[in-house]
Simulated scan of single mutants.
Amino acid sequence: MIEIDQLSKHYRAPDGRLTEVLQSINLQVPQANITAVVGPSGAGKSTLAKCISLLEQPSSGSIRVNGSDLSRLDGEALRQARRSIGTVFQSSALLQRKTAWENIALPLRYLGVVDRDITARVGELLESVGLSHKAKAYPSQLSGGQRQRIGIARALALRPTVLLADEATSGLDPEATVTILDLLKKLRDDYKLAIVLITHEMDAVRQAADAVAEIRDGQIVQYGVVKALLAQPDSALGQRLLPLAAQASDAELVLQLSYRTDVPVTSDWISRLSQQFGLRIDLLGAHVEQVNGLQAGRLQVGIHFQHERLPLARLLAQFEQLGLIASVSGSVLPLREAV
C-alpha cells in the first residue's frame, strides 16, 4: 500500500518568494485498490504524481510504500526503492526502434536479469495486457491504446506494488479508454496493486476507481469511496461523478434522489408512492448507469401534493425504504409546512 502523510511541495523563485504547490496532502491507497485523484488544471495533480514517483523530492512530509518511507532515501537506496513504483504517463514513451517485446524487456536488461527470466517475465506481461500476438510489432505498427498497454506492461516489469497512472487515458478514443481502464482493474485484482489514477475525466473515475480524492489549490478538499459518494445527494463530488441536467418545475417540493448502495431500488417506486400517498411525481432529470458493477443513479423529482401535505420526514423515509436517499433540493412550500 501507499501512505502519503502531510506531503507539501514548494518552489522558490529567483527573488526568494515561495510558491506552495502542495499543502499537507494526506492520502492512503490500500493494496488491490484504485484511487483516483481529480481536479482542475493547475491544482497540483502533476506535481503530486511526480512526488509519488519520486521524480520530485517533497519539501516536507512522507511517502511510505509498504511501510518504507521513500521520501527519506537517496542514492542507491532510493533507486532500489523506486522499483516498487511503476509509472505510466499520458505518452507511452516507447522506443521507436525496438519491438513491443524489447520495450518491455528494457528495465530487466538494465538490471542484468538473465535471458531465461526475461523471456518468461515479458511473455507473462504480454499475456496480461492481451498483446502476445504483438510481441514483434514496433510502436508505429500499434494503435494508441496498444502502445499504452505495452507501456503499462513495461511499468510492471520489475514487479512493483504501486502503479501510478498519470493521465494514462488522456487523448485515447473511447474504446481504447475502456480497454485501458478494464486492464487497470484486472491488474489491480491479479497483482493486488495499489493504483493511483491521476485524471481529469470523471468517466474514468466512474468506470475504474474504488475511491476518489479531489485536489484544488494544492489541497485535498474531498475524499470518499466512489459508491458512497454516489449515494450522497448533497455531495458536490458525487454530483460531478453523476452529472444531472434537470428542468425547472413549479412543484411544491423538489427533491434530489440518489440510489442506495446497500439495497436495490424498487423499479415501480414512482407509481407506488403516487398511489399510496396521492402524489403527482414529476421526473425532472435522471442519470442512471452501472458503475463498477453497481447500479448507481442520481435523480431530481418534483412533488405535487394532491390531497393533504405529507410530513416531509415521513416522505423521505418512504423513499429510503424503496432504495432511494432523498434530500430537499428546493421548495416553494415553507419547510415548516412540509414537515
Rank of each mutant, 00 (worst) to 15 (best):
V129W: 07
W101F: 14
L156S: 08
A93Q: 12
R83C: 10
S91G: 14
S91M: 09
R154I: 03
R83F: 01
G123S: 12
I150G: 05
W101H: 10
A165H: 06
G144T: 10
A135Q: 13
P139L: 05
N103Y: 04
I104P: 00
L131V: 08
S91E: 12
L126T: 05
A93S: 14
S140E: 13
G144S: 11
S132Q: 14
G144C: 10
V113Y: 13
R154V: 03
D166K: 04
I152C: 06
V162L: 05
V114P: 06
L94K: 09
Q148E: 08
T119G: 07
D117K: 14
D115T: 12
V129I: 13
Q96C: 09
K98L: 14
R147W: 03
I85W: 04
L111R: 14
E127H: 14
E124N: 08
A120M: 13
T99H: 03
A153N: 06
V88Q: 03
L131F: 08
V162Q: 05
F89I: 04
S84V: 01
G151E: 02
G112Q: 06
G151N: 06
V162R: 02
A165S: 04
Q148F: 06
A135P: 08
L142H: 10
I152T: 07
L131G: 09
T169I: 04
G151S: 09
V114E: 14
E124R: 14
I152H: 04
Q96V: 15
L125K: 13
P139Q: 08
T99G: 01
R147H: 07
K136Q: 15
L142Q: 10
R83L: 09
R116Y: 10
T161C: 12
T87R: 07
S92D: 05
V114R: 15
L106N: 00
Y110C: 09
L108E: 00
I118Y: 03
I150Q: 07
S128M: 15
Q96G: 12
A81P: 02
F89N: 01
G130Y: 09
A81T: 02
L158D: 00
E102M: 01
S84W: 00
I85T: 01
P160R: 04
R116D: 13
K134A: 15
A137Q: 13
L108S: 02
L131Q: 09
K98I: 09
Q96P: 13
R97E: 12
I152G: 06
A120H: 14
L95K: 08
S140V: 14
E167K: 02
I104T: 01
Y138F: 15
R97K: 14
S132D: 07
R159G: 00
I150C: 09
R147N: 12
V122R: 07
Q90W: 06
A157H: 05
V129E: 10
P107K: 01
R149D: 04
A168W: 00
V129F: 13
Y110D: 08
L95I: 15
R82A: 02
G130D: 07
L126R: 10
Q80N: 12
L111C: 12
N103M: 02
